[in-house]
């Protein structure tokens, strides 16, 4: 029974966020006044053509990058203007990450990689939650393996487990299935969705794949640095439709 309490802050929120790279000739406006809310316990996908600013938006939301104008909140906390120390702690304690590739430390075993954020913080995992996470990602018999001994899909599952283990306010995933075959990709997406449904996790996922986006509860469409539309309860077909429309819609803008 999760009715959205209007006073409970969103897991992450961008308000009028601008991001500009470079100057002069090389000036690129990656985000032009993006405002978006990502509610708790929801799986949101950010979609858009390549170069539309998806990754930039995610990096700004996650405190990996600074914004030029506007504000970003994670939970109830305004992170815009925070120093490196505070941002590092925020990422460590309240944010989880899944990158497209190179997610794991080659020197550590799967188990150690999963525990990494907790170890950095000097915390112990909750054993019950640990078991749940490990069983969800199905890695129990692979825990002592090094990343080099795991397949790409397994590695990405380890990265998911790592993101989940600290029960962060929000998990950001940037094209988590981009490097995987469709079966491994589907596995990952299924338990990302499961962790939202069953454990009330909040996930924001960047993707350009309509099938991946259809696993989400809601899809936000980005084009040329601005949010142009959104969709709730997406299916691959509705997402593809929307994308097609955006492409034709975007063309005059691109001129």
């Amino acid at each position: 029974m999760t009715t959205t309490d209007s006073r409970e802050p969103a897991a992450a929120r961008a308000g009028e966020v601008w991001k500009v790279y470079g100057t002069g000739e090389a000036r690129v406006v990656a985000l032009r006044g993006v405002s978006a809310e990502f509610e708790r316990g929801r799986f949101t996908a950010i979609m858009g053509p390549s170069g539309s600013g998806k990754s930039t938006l995610m990096h700004c939301l996650a405190g990996l990058d600074t914004v030029d104008r506007g504000e970003v909140h994670v939970g109830g906390t305004k992170i815009t203007g925070m120093g490196d120390k505070a941002l590092t702690r925020l990422r460590r304690d309240r944010v989880g990450f899944i990158f497209q590739q190179f997610n794991l430390l080659p020197t550590l075993s799967a188990q150690e990689n999963i525990r990494l954020p907790l170890d950095i913080a000097g915390r112990k995992p909750d054993p019950q939650w640990w078991d749940i996470v490990i069983d969800t990602v199905g890695l129990r018999d692979r825990l002592s393996h090094r990343p080099s001994q795991l397949s790409g899909g397994q590695q990405q599952r380890v990265a998911c487990a790592r993101a989940l283990i600290g029960r962060p306010d929000v998990i950001f995933a940037d094209e988590p299935t981009g490097n995987l075959d469709s079966r491994s990709g589907a596995e990952i997406l299924s338990f990302l969705r499961a962790s939202v449904r069953e454990h009330n996790q909040t996930i924001v996922m960047v993707t350009h794949d309509p099938v991946a986006a259809s696993y989400a509860d809601r899809v936000v469409f980005l084009a040329d640095g601005a949010i142009v539309d959104e969709l709730t309860g997406p299916t691959p077909e509705t997402v593809l439709d929307m994308m097609k429309r955006l492409d034709t819609h975007a063309e005059p803008v691109m001129l």
Binding site: L64, T88, F97, L104, P106, L116, I120
Partner: peptide, 16 residues
């Protein structure tokens, strides 16, 4: 470099 970036992303502090 990339490893360091990952570590920093998941919360390893500068001092650490």
């Amino acid at each position: 470099t990339r490893e360091l970036g990952l570590l920093r992303a998941v919360g390893l502090g500068r001092a650490q």
